[in-house]
Amino acid sequence: MKNRKFLAGILAGCLALSLAACGNTPDGDGGKNDGGKGTAAGDGEKITVVLDWTPNTNHTGMYVALEKGYYKEAGLEVEIMQPPEDGASALVAAGKAEFGINAQDTIAPAFAMEQPLPVTAVAALIQHNTSGIISRKGEGIDHPGGLAGKTYATWDNPVEQAMIENVVNGDGGDYGKVNLIPNNITDEAAALEMNQTDAIWVFYGWGGISAKLRGVETDFFNFVDYNKTFDYYTPVLIANNDFLAERPEAAKAFLAATARGYEDAVKDPEEAAKILCTADPSLDKELVSESQKWLADQYMADTEQWGYIDPARWNGFYQWLWENQLISVEIPENFGFSNDYLAK
């Protein structure tokens, strides 16, 4: 494991560069000069949401709310845009957007600082961590211990590798025998077909469904099945702290309208898939349709309130990061998230 001081220096430098990049974004541009496609509707209080990636089924509820006029009914003019190269969080922290999308694991270093990034997670887009390891079927990687002696494509991220080590060793395998190669993969199914790697970390609702549609027979195991601590929140909707303090009613109105969009996506995933594909015609319609059906059971799994963040799960994961020396500063209990802006 890399020591905490080393990580702190890297993270502080990355954050400074990200905020500097935000400061160079012209006011009102919202990062569009980075090539992001914006989608907006309504004539009301302006809200900008920055995605974490290109539009996909994690985001569908917002596009449904936009298409059906839920934001407009709430008195909001909402723009959904793709992120700049340095991601959504720095843009939101700099006040260039009110909301953005990140994940509890990837935003952790920005919270583990003497001056944490001034954003707060205000809603979980999906209730459980649906990620895990996908591999070619029948090669013995249907459980973590089976990774020993196999090749895994890694992002070389300390948290990622620590999680892999935890589940592999916990399942009786030897993490030291896992062959790590750089992950420059953009198409998981193709990479498995072409034997570029034996195993890849994917979110099943997209990567797993894509492989299935391509006819690639795979095995998959979910991290949560081997360590409940890894049932952290990914992805989450974050908001700028000043915005939350100064315009709480706008934040609540946005989240209430967004909840309606996700509730509709749960009830009618086929309609929701069509709305997402209309918003971005470049998407694979079959993949979106099947992914949408799969995620319909995940948006509000085990809860009656879309967006709710369980404090025990949130705190438990950050405590694990601290105990395993994966963050430079201990994140206080209940820090970095709030359920206060969700509809009661």
Rank of each mutant, 00 (worst) to 15 (best):
D27C: 12
D156S: 13
M62Y: 10
D34Y: 15
S328H: 10
L276N: 01
W155T: 07
D284S: 04
N227W: 12
E290T: 10
F111D: 00
W53H: 13
Y152M: 05
N240V: 11
N33S: 15
L125P: 04
A41H: 11
G170T: 03
F99A: 02
P144H: 04
I141L: 08
G13N: 10
I47K: 03
G336I: 03
N241W: 12
K285S: 08
Y262R: 06
A190W: 05
I10T: 09
S328V: 10
N102L: 14
D34Q: 15
F254R: 05
K344Y: 11
A21H: 11
L7H: 04
A40M: 15
F223R: 04
T39C: 14
E333M: 09
D29Q: 03
L117C: 02
G31V: 05
G69D: 01
L192D: 00
E323N: 07
A189P: 01
E67L: 13
N334L: 05
A108E: 00
G205L: 12
W53M: 12
T229L: 14
L321N: 02
Q292I: 11
P182Y: 03
T278Q: 14
A296Y: 06
I126Y: 10
W294S: 05
L15R: 14
K274H: 08
N179H: 11
S18L: 15
G44I: 10
K96D: 00
V266C: 08
S131G: 06
N157M: 11
I331V: 10
L15I: 13
L295H: 07
I126V: 13
T54D: 05
A88T: 01
A112N: 01
I141N: 02
G30Q: 01
N166D: 11
Y308E: 09
Y233S: 02
L17W: 15
K37C: 06
R4N: 04
D105P: 09
Q161R: 14
G23E: 08
E67T: 09
V50E: 00
G132C: 04
V178E: 00
L147I: 02
K32I: 15
W155K: 13
V64K: 04
M113C: 07
K37Q: 10
L237K: 04
I10V: 13
D340F: 12
P235G: 02
D297F: 13
N129W: 07
L11T: 15
F254I: 08
L76T: 01
L17P: 03
L91T: 07
G145I: 09
V202M: 04
S291Q: 07
D225C: 11
N166F: 14
T106Q: 07
G31L: 07
P83H: 03
L11P: 11
E79H: 08
D52K: 14
Q104S: 03
A301L: 14
A148P: 02
D43E: 12
K37R: 14
D297T: 12
D187S: 06
D187W: 06
Y341R: 06
V178A: 01
V64T: 01
L213P: 00
A265V: 07
S89R: 13
A65V: 07
I275Q: 03
V78S: 04
G9S: 14
P55K: 05
H128M: 12
I101C: 02
Y204R: 04
G208E: 01
V64W: 06
P311L: 08
V167I: 08
N315F: 11
N58K: 14
S282F: 08
Y175W: 09
